[in-house]
Computed example of a mutant assay.
Amino acid sequence: MLTRSDVLAADVQIREHIRRTPLVQVYGSPQPLWLKCEFMQHTGSFKARGAFNRVFSAKSRGELDPAVGIVAASGGNAGMANAYAAARAGVPATVFVPLTAPPVKVARLREYGALVRQVGNEYVEAFDAAIEYASQTGAVFCHAYDQLEIAAGAGTLAEEILHDEPEIDTVIVSVGGGGLLAGVLAGIDGRAKVVAVEPRTIPTLNAALTAGKPLDVSVSGIAADSLGARRIGNVAFDTASKIAVSSVLVDDVDIDAARTRLWTEYRIAAEHGAATAYAALTSGAYTPTTGERVCVVICGANTDPATLATVPVETALSRR
């Protein structure tokens, strides 16, 4: 099981490579509220933390062949993060994506120095090809979320939160495959409550907790590009089974509204997956008790700014 010791080891491993992102208090909220601004991390998401931990841990163990480097399967935040970490480690990165991957994401991966290989029409085909590539070449495989080192790296943001504001009672995070959730649960280690938030259309954790095991769910909705795992990762499920977590679901309309509020009120250009955590508060899916000190992790900002809606200034002010 992932533990706080794993997270503390990751913190030592990656601290010189990552940004220590701000913890910003939000005034005018009904309860004491902070935002962990992880969207300011390298490559625009928390994924850089796990990528650095996985890549540099492998390098320190002598597992990283400078001729082949690392391999990943992801056209999104994980792919970009691992390509960036590999470049910083001075090794190549090969990233497998489906043929259907948006050209803008393929171009972004190449900007980070990745050799992009497009295989099949679905993510699972790209994933299988990446596993086969790792087996044939000896490249270090970097999972998007379901590896101890990946999750431990993500958990370092929890250490930062409670170091900067030790009296925080609750940390709210979005969940897709669960790497961030596992890391935060392990990093907090019972020192605060953790609330896991998922789109109602992709309830990987919620369904697994109900069934008592990970299982496939259908994937749809506006946050599917970043929270679109078909099942919760084993690392996350194992950790969530042993450390208490509250699971809540939010609707797409609530995610979109939360994203609009983050932009209108704070000028945070959050992706829908990141806004999912904030939607737990704005929709009422999670209602803090009086005086509860809450932190919401805004975990990524790889989004199209042209899609950010606005509301009239007087409407935004009336919400404060």
Rank of each mutant, 00 (worst) to 15 (best):
M1T: 14
T3K: 14
S5Y: 10
L8H: 11
D11A: 15
D11M: 14
D11H: 15
R15M: 10
P32S: 09
Q41V: 09
S45T: 13
A51M: 06
R61C: 09
G69Y: 07
G69P: 05
G76L: 05
A78P: 06
A78Y: 09
G79P: 04
Y84N: 02
A89P: 01
P102R: 12
P103G: 08
K105F: 04
K105S: 05
R110D: 03
E111R: 15
V116P: 05
V119P: 03
V119F: 11
V119H: 12
N121C: 02
N121E: 15
E122N: 08
Y123M: 11
A129E: 03
A130M: 12
T137S: 14
V140W: 08
F141V: 03
A151P: 03
A152R: 07
G153A: 06
G155V: 07
L157P: 01
A158L: 02
I168P: 06
I168K: 09
D169Q: 10
T170V: 10
V171A: 01
V173M: 04
V175R: 01
V175T: 01
G178E: 05
A182P: 01
A182C: 02
V184C: 02
L185D: 03
I188F: 01
D189H: 10
A192C: 06
K193I: 03
A196C: 06
V197S: 03
R200P: 00
A211Q: 13
K213A: 14
L215F: 09
D225A: 15
A229W: 05
I232Q: 02
D238H: 10
D238W: 00
K242N: 12
K242F: 00
S246Y: 01
I255L: 04
E265Y: 04
I268H: 07
I268V: 15
A274K: 04
A279E: 01
T282I: 08
A285Y: 08
Y286A: 02
P288V: 13
G291H: 11
E292D: 05
E292Q: 13
V294K: 06
C299F: 05
D304I: 11
V313D: 12
E314N: 13
A316I: 10
S318H: 12
R319Q: 12
